[in-house]
């Protein structure tokens, strides 16, 4: 996999530019309801969280798909092929994170395809709340978490 979207909710200002640019990137028009990324705002906590498909290594959506319309491409992205899809929406139920959805407007299911390697949500996010990082960088971050774990265990 070439890269991964990473979110930093502390930086999110709830402007929803990601939703707009996602829909524009996929449809050439603006409609947040067709965005693969969704921004959730918690008013009293003053927290906003953008959520999108994380391209699970064990992708439930692909596993449950009866027609093979969902599959992993060479870049490691779980992509949806319209031609093979019968719109049974099993994937919508199967995704444990709610990151694949059905649109009554397009009468189709849709999910994040990382915009072919240049995700618009990250590209246009004004604050860095969504970034697209090389997988190596993600591993480095994981390593830091592991290091922390090791340290904690050693101290215990």
């Amino acid at each position: 996999m070439t890269g991964q979207l990473v979110i930093d909710p502390k930086r999110c200002v709830a402007c929803r530019t990601c939703e707009l640019m996602c829909s524009f990137g996929h449809h050439d028009y603006f409609n947040p309801r067709l965005a693969c990324v969704s921004v959730f705002n918690y008013e009293y906590a003053a927290v906003t969280v953008p959520v999108m498909c994380l391209q699970c290594d064990e992708a439930s959506c692909a596993a449950v798909c009866p027609t093979g319309a969902l599959s992993r491409n060479a870049d490691g992205v779980v992509v949806h092929e319209d031609a093979k899809c019968i719109v049974c929406k099993m994937c919508v139920s199967a995704c444990p994170l709610g990151n694949i959805a059905y649109s009554p407007i397009t009468k189709n299911v849709f999910k994040c395809d990382l915009c072919g390697g240049e995700p618009k949500c990250a590209l246009f996010c004004p604050t860095g709340a969504i970034t697209f990082v090389e997988s190596d960088e993600v591993l480095a971050k994981k390593r830091a978490v592991a290091d922390n774990f090791k340290k904690t265990l050693e101290e215990a």
């Binding site: 200002v13 709830a14 402007c15 929803r16 530019t17 707009l20 003053a46 906003t48 004004p126 604050t127």
Partner: peptide, 19 residues
């Protein structure tokens, strides 16, 4: 100031969430 916030599609995000 708790955080700053933007209106629709706004990168300026001058809004003040205050408590």
């Amino acid at each position: 100031l708790v955080k700053n916030q933007g209106c629709f599609g706004c990168s300026i995000a001058c809004g003040r969430v205050t408590r």
